[in-house]
Amino acid sequence: MKKLFLLLTVAMLSACTSSVHMSQVDVGSNSANELELGKVIEIEKSQKNILGFVYDTNYVDQAYKNLLLDCPNGTSMVNVEYLTNHGFLSWTDKIRIKAICL
């Protein structure tokens, strides 16, 4: 019974943790109208990683390219979050970008 409880606890605590490495907010030259009227866009790109065997970080570049496409007139505020979802002998790295387009 004790072992079963332990096993259930382990199962519950397994493979659902995350780690937020950084979250950065940056604001440009100020204009109240830009923040008020601008459209907030959200971009998320990820990369599956098994035991560290990845050879590029192109998913980050892809997220940045999407930001450039979504905001042709530039941005007034941007938030970049880099996090990892942990898993069984593998993990998923994610980039989340939120921005206010001009």
């Binding site: 940056d26 980050v60 042709p72 941005t75 941007v78």
Partner: peptide, 8 residues
Amino acid sequence: VSMTQVPA
């Protein structure tokens, strides 16, 4: 990763 405001 870090980025500053994207210009037009």
